[in-house]
Amino acid sequence: MVLTIALYCLVFAMILTLYRVLKGPTWGDRITALDFLTSNLAVLVVVIVLKTGYTDLLDIALLFSILGFLSTVALARYLLNRRVIK
């Protein structure tokens, strides 16, 4: 019951954020929304693990959080310096 409520909340937040990705007036809104989406996917995978019981999927949550952080930092550095690595 709690896990079903959790899934509905997470998916509703992701739909609202998807509107911000598509509409967002500046590029900063889009990067923020994509960061939010990847963090939210990691949380969603943990809730799915709790609902089904397959604990092997926990590695995928860690992978999503690492990928979201790296892509966010790379995009921000690219937009500031026009290059990722000096």
Binding site: V2, L3, I5, A6, C9, L10, F12, A13, M14, I15, L16, T17, Y19, R20, T26, G28, D29, T32, A33, F36, N40, V43, V47, L50
Partner: peptide
């Protein structure tokens, strides 16, 4: 889990309605 869901739902509504980057 309910506490975390309330916070994430508030974050989604904030992403939708706030006026600024």
């Amino acid at each position: 889990i309910l506490l975390g869901c309330v916070f994430i739902l508030a974050a989604g509504i904030g992403m939708f309605r706030f006026p600024d980057f």
